[in-house]
Design a protein around this nucleic acid. Sequence first.
DNA 1: ATTCGCCTACCGGACGAACGGTCAGTGTAA
DNA 2: TTACACTGACCGTTCGTCCGGTAGGCGAAT
Lengths: 232, 232
Amino acid sequence: MVTVRTPRASSRDDILRVFAEHVARKGYSDTSLSEIATVLGLSKGTIVHHFGNKERMLHEVHSAYYERRFAEAEFIHRELDDPLTQLAAIVYALLAAHRDDRAATIAFLREFVRYAEGGGLSEELRGRRIEYRDMVVAIIERGVAGGVFHSSDPGLSALHIFGMCNYAWTWYRPEGAKSIEEIATFFASDVLLGLCGARSESLTDVDEAISTAIATVIRTPNRLPPEPPAAS
Amino acid sequence: MVTVRTPRASSRDDILRVFAEHVARKGYSDTSLSEIATVLGLSKGTIVHHFGNKERMLHEVHSAYYERRFAEAEFIHRELDDPLTQLAAIVYALLAAHRDDRAATIAFLREFVRYAEGGGLSEELRGRRIEYRDMVVAIIERGVAGGVFHSSDPGLSALHIFGMCNYAWTWYRPEGAKSIEEIATFFASDVLLGLCGARSESLTDVDEAISTAIATVIRTPNRLPPEPPAAS
DNA sequence: ATTCGCCTACCGGACGAACGGTCAGTGTAA
DNA sequence: TTACACTGACCGTTCGTCCGGTAGGCGAAT
């Protein structure tokens, strides 16, 4: 095979993209550098040249994933002001990532436990995880303080939400019957009605909050476009 | 080290136990047979002698895990009759496994996606997963039919519950401040109040259902005892 | 305009380690 | 004598990593 190399155009991004796809499909340990090199028509040495080692590649995938989630979250925080809508937006954003940022999302959710305990590059990513969680906890606490939410433990409420959303990669399929918007609406009203105490007047509030939340998250700057349905 | 080998006592169970612990801690691919052999003072050949290959060991761990969950679930079904209490019991059972059946639970939740797509030993385990899900869906549907629950999509409600519970291994620590009973009570009332429409009169119903559920699950025959708090 | 050195992407073979798995053989209880 | 848990040397493969070398674009010096 003749390699046609566009001058000055590094394969860095391609490598990272294919790497994330493989990690998503087979997990980190079962992803081999030689396989990725073969897919891209590169040599294994090139990959090492760009990233140093395999661990740093995973770190970079995870780091970029966090970057996107934080950008989203900060946009949500900036554009929306009531906790109800903010929380709905977080739920939708986390679920939309399953469709629009699929490879990185699955690669992250499959492998982030690697950073649970110390060692190597884990400090930074562990910090980011705590940061994100605290942000959601803060939203819930603001809701509680404002009398909108009722939760005896905002930390557990947040873990409830994260579990509900972050487990979706194990069952969600883009080609499935339910759209992400339907799923997010269902999940968000589930938890929001619970948090609101589900007084009947809050029903319309929740519906409205979810609509606004979805519309807002979609407007996130530099947002990855929804992935087209798989051709195969 | 001198190996004291009790005659006729096969190491099968020990091997499987240590294997599950290692898979829980490091994942399937990063668990090596030689390491397990060393820990137990055996040779690698012995492990292969008992199980044939590594894949079958994982299969057996997962299979045994399902066995225990189904035994629990069937006991719940037998002892309890209203969907409210049954669902609370399922939530508690899934969470209690994180403490009382810890290694197998984490090993399962880390690795069950391996069986998502076809190949090898996956058919049976995939079937069991569907079976378990359908059972929970059936409970919700019975609740809906009886007017106790309100859910426009029992399938999604079940996925909500599974996500909430099955994500716990990523954050739950036995030595943590919250007990499994507290967590389960919090999570169960979250979803049950949502499903009940959270009319105020259902609040006491839900509390009572959860208490009954916990008391019942604990009585499950052949239940593994709660693991003692780690000494180290 | 040509030459030069430098930077960087990339090659591709070699490496040592570790892996899962094989197999002929051993010792002991039944 | 049979049955079986178990050994330990061994095999083929694959892994991540290393490294000397090549090629081409580019800015500076000539």
